[in-house]
């Protein structure tokens, strides 16, 4: 039990510390990336990137959240990518 608690504490320190540290530390090169650029880079890392127009806007929201979990994307990345993908439907 003590071991488990130690692990949980280490995990919590890592997450909170990391979150606090990185909240203001994204390079301008990354911050200025467009949704199209993030789509090409992040989707293709594991699979062929689905084209804009493949799904409707509601489905892109769902799939974006799924990928946030499966591929460890940040919310900012997901929002930019889904906005880009939705643009073909508008």
């Amino acid at each position: 039990m003590k071991k488990l608690i130690t692990y949980i504490v280490i995990i919590a320190i890592f997450i909170t510390g990391g979150t606090a540290l990185t909240g203001c530390y994204v390079s301008s090169k990354v911050a200025n990336k467009s949704g199209a650029q993030l789509w090409g880079e992040n989707c293709n890392r594991c699979h062929n990137a689905p084209g804009p127009g493949e799904f409707n806007n509601d489905n892109w929201d769902i799939i974006g959240t799924h990928m946030q979990i499966r591929a460890n994307l940040t919310k900012t990345e997901v929002d930019k990518i889904t906005e880009f993908l939705k643009s073909a439907n508008n």
Binding site: I11, F14, K29
Partner: peptide, 19 residues
């Protein structure tokens, strides 16, 4: 578990921890 991504400048650290 907990998971996410932490940007550090131009790179990212992806993490997953679980019990």
């Amino acid at each position: 578990g907990a998971l996410g991504a932490l940007p550090f400048g131009s790179m990212k650290v992806l993490y997953d921890v679980y019990v």
